[in-house]
Measured scan of single mutants.
Amino acid sequence: NQESVVAAVLIPINTALTVGMMTTRVVSPTGAPAEDIPRLISMQVNQVVPMGTTLMPDMVKGYAP
């Protein structure tokens, strides 16, 4: 099972992602793949992402898996 990126903390809208904001988990439906964490760092979210929420590609500005 592939791990997806999950918010480790509450991420406010327009916040640039840091490694400490993200964790990985096997979830369904799958979100952004765990191996993309290095690409996701410094990208901004376009909505509030509550802690424990799977990071879906459409939540991150300019990100395409």
Rank of each mutant, 00 (worst) to 15 (best):
residue 22 M to T: 07
residue 11 I to T: 00
residue 35 E to H: 15
residue 25 R to E: 09
residue 50 P to M: 10
residue 65 P to E: 10
residue 58 D to F: 15
residue 26 V to I: 14
residue 36 D to S: 03
residue 5 V to L: 03
residue 40 L to N: 00
residue 2 Q to C: 12
residue 16 A to H: 13
residue 31 G to Q: 01
residue 35 E to A: 15
residue 61 K to C: 12
residue 20 G to S: 14
residue 1 N to V: 14
residue 5 V to T: 01
residue 58 D to E: 14
residue 26 V to N: 11
residue 12 P to D: 10
residue 55 L to H: 02
residue 54 T to F: 04
residue 24 T to W: 09
residue 49 V to E: 03
residue 36 D to I: 04
residue 43 M to D: 02
residue 19 V to T: 11
residue 16 A to D: 05
residue 36 D to H: 05
residue 9 V to E: 09
residue 1 N to R: 13
residue 24 T to I: 10
residue 42 S to D: 12
residue 34 A to N: 01
residue 59 M to I: 02
residue 18 T to S: 11
residue 45 V to I: 04
residue 19 V to D: 08
residue 20 G to C: 14
residue 5 V to N: 02
residue 41 I to S: 05
residue 22 M to A: 07
residue 58 D to L: 07
residue 35 E to T: 13
residue 22 M to H: 06
residue 3 E to M: 14
residue 61 K to I: 15
residue 59 M to A: 06
residue 10 L to E: 12
residue 9 V to H: 03
residue 61 K to W: 12
residue 22 M to N: 06
residue 19 V to W: 15
residue 47 Q to M: 09
residue 33 P to H: 05
residue 10 L to N: 14
residue 8 A to P: 00
residue 54 T to R: 00
residue 7 A to K: 00
residue 40 L to K: 00
residue 41 I to E: 03
residue 60 V to E: 05
residue 61 K to G: 05
residue 30 T to V: 15
residue 41 I to K: 00
residue 7 A to N: 01
residue 43 M to F: 06
residue 63 Y to W: 06
residue 47 Q to H: 04
residue 44 Q to Y: 13
residue 24 T to Q: 08
residue 31 G to D: 00
residue 56 M to S: 04
residue 24 T to P: 08
residue 52 G to K: 02
residue 38 P to R: 08
residue 14 N to G: 12
residue 7 A to Y: 07
residue 13 I to P: 10
residue 26 V to H: 12
residue 57 P to L: 08
residue 48 V to E: 15
residue 29 P to L: 05
residue 59 M to V: 03
residue 18 T to A: 09
residue 61 K to Q: 11
residue 63 Y to D: 04
residue 49 V to D: 00
residue 57 P to E: 05
residue 15 T to I: 07
residue 38 P to G: 11
residue 60 V to M: 04
residue 58 D to W: 15
residue 37 I to V: 08
residue 37 I to W: 04
residue 37 I to P: 04
residue 27 V to A: 05
residue 26 V to E: 07
residue 10 L to Q: 07
residue 52 G to P: 02
residue 16 A to F: 15
residue 53 T to L: 03
residue 18 T to P: 04
residue 63 Y to G: 05
residue 19 V to G: 09
residue 9 V to W: 04
residue 39 R to E: 06
residue 59 M to L: 08
residue 38 P to W: 13
residue 32 A to L: 15
residue 53 T to H: 13
residue 56 M to E: 03
residue 52 G to L: 07
residue 25 R to S: 10
residue 50 P to T: 10
residue 23 T to F: 09
residue 25 R to M: 11
residue 13 I to W: 07
residue 53 T to G: 08
residue 55 L to C: 04
residue 49 V to P: 02
residue 9 V to D: 02
residue 26 V to M: 14
residue 65 P to H: 10
residue 51 M to I: 10
residue 8 A to V: 08
residue 3 E to Y: 13
residue 34 A to K: 10
residue 61 K to L: 10
residue 27 V to E: 06
residue 61 K to A: 11
residue 15 T to R: 01
residue 38 P to M: 10
residue 6 V to N: 01
residue 42 S to N: 14
residue 12 P to A: 08
residue 6 V to H: 00
residue 12 P to F: 09
residue 37 I to Y: 00
residue 18 T to E: 12
residue 23 T to I: 12
residue 20 G to R: 12
residue 22 M to I: 09
residue 33 P to C: 07
residue 40 L to D: 01
residue 16 A to M: 12
residue 60 V to L: 06
residue 5 V to S: 00
residue 6 V to Q: 01
residue 2 Q to S: 12
residue 52 G to F: 08
residue 41 I to V: 14
residue 64 A to H: 14
residue 21 M to R: 00
residue 3 E to V: 11
residue 21 M to N: 07
residue 21 M to A: 05
residue 47 Q to P: 02
residue 3 E to G: 11
residue 14 N to H: 14
residue 52 G to Q: 03
residue 42 S to I: 08
residue 61 K to F: 12
residue 46 N to R: 07
residue 16 A to I: 14
residue 24 T to R: 13
residue 60 V to W: 07
residue 7 A to D: 01
residue 13 I to D: 10
residue 33 P to K: 06
residue 52 G to C: 08
residue 41 I to L: 10
residue 24 T to C: 09
residue 31 G to I: 00
residue 36 D to L: 04
residue 46 N to Q: 06
residue 63 Y to P: 04
residue 14 N to E: 06
residue 15 T to W: 08
residue 17 L to D: 03
residue 24 T to N: 07
residue 6 V to P: 01
residue 52 G to M: 06
residue 16 A to W: 13
residue 1 N to G: 15
residue 44 Q to K: 14
residue 4 S to F: 07
residue 12 P to K: 10
residue 29 P to M: 08
residue 7 A to W: 08
residue 43 M to E: 02
residue 46 N to E: 02
residue 55 L to D: 02
residue 47 Q to A: 06
residue 13 I to R: 13
residue 26 V to T: 08
residue 46 N to H: 06
residue 1 N to L: 15
residue 5 V to Y: 04
residue 36 D to G: 01
residue 17 L to I: 05
residue 4 S to E: 01
residue 28 S to N: 13
residue 22 M to C: 08
residue 45 V to L: 07
residue 44 Q to F: 12
residue 16 A to S: 13
residue 36 D to T: 01
residue 32 A to F: 15
residue 28 S to Q: 13
residue 16 A to P: 13
residue 33 P to D: 03
residue 55 L to K: 01
residue 58 D to P: 01
residue 12 P to T: 09
residue 36 D to A: 03
residue 19 V to L: 15
residue 64 A to V: 15
residue 60 V to A: 01
residue 45 V to S: 03
residue 13 I to N: 12
residue 12 P to R: 09
residue 20 G to K: 14
residue 38 P to N: 10
residue 34 A to S: 07
residue 3 E to I: 10
residue 29 P to K: 01
residue 37 I to Q: 04
residue 45 V to Y: 03
residue 22 M to Y: 01
residue 6 V to T: 02
residue 3 E to D: 05
residue 39 R to M: 11
residue 49 V to F: 06
residue 63 Y to F: 05
residue 33 P to E: 03
residue 31 G to S: 05
residue 37 I to H: 01
residue 8 A to F: 09
residue 63 Y to M: 05
residue 36 D to K: 00
residue 58 D to N: 14
residue 19 V to F: 15
residue 59 M to D: 03
residue 46 N to C: 09
residue 25 R to T: 08
residue 52 G to R: 01
residue 7 A to R: 00
residue 10 L to R: 12
residue 65 P to T: 11
residue 14 N to C: 10
residue 43 M to S: 05
residue 56 M to R: 07
residue 19 V to S: 13
residue 54 T to H: 04
residue 11 I to P: 00
residue 44 Q to L: 11
residue 60 V to T: 03
residue 15 T to P: 02
residue 51 M to E: 14
residue 15 T to F: 09
residue 30 T to M: 15
residue 60 V to F: 06
residue 37 I to T: 02
residue 48 V to D: 15
residue 61 K to V: 14
residue 6 V to I: 14
residue 54 T to N: 00
residue 15 T to M: 08
residue 6 V to L: 07
residue 11 I to C: 07
residue 15 T to N: 04
residue 23 T to G: 07
residue 8 A to C: 09
residue 28 S to R: 10
residue 48 V to I: 12
residue 13 I to S: 11
residue 41 I to Q: 01
residue 7 A to C: 06
residue 54 T to K: 00
residue 35 E to Y: 15
residue 23 T to L: 12
residue 45 V to C: 04
residue 61 K to S: 11
residue 24 T to E: 07
residue 5 V to Q: 00
residue 13 I to F: 10
residue 30 T to G: 11
residue 19 V to C: 14
residue 57 P to S: 07
residue 2 Q to D: 10
residue 48 V to Q: 13
residue 39 R to H: 10
residue 39 R to L: 12
residue 26 V to L: 14
residue 38 P to Y: 11
residue 23 T to C: 11
residue 6 V to G: 01
residue 3 E to C: 12
residue 56 M to W: 05
residue 40 L to T: 00
residue 21 M to K: 00
residue 64 A to T: 15
residue 58 D to H: 15
residue 14 N to V: 06
residue 6 V to W: 06
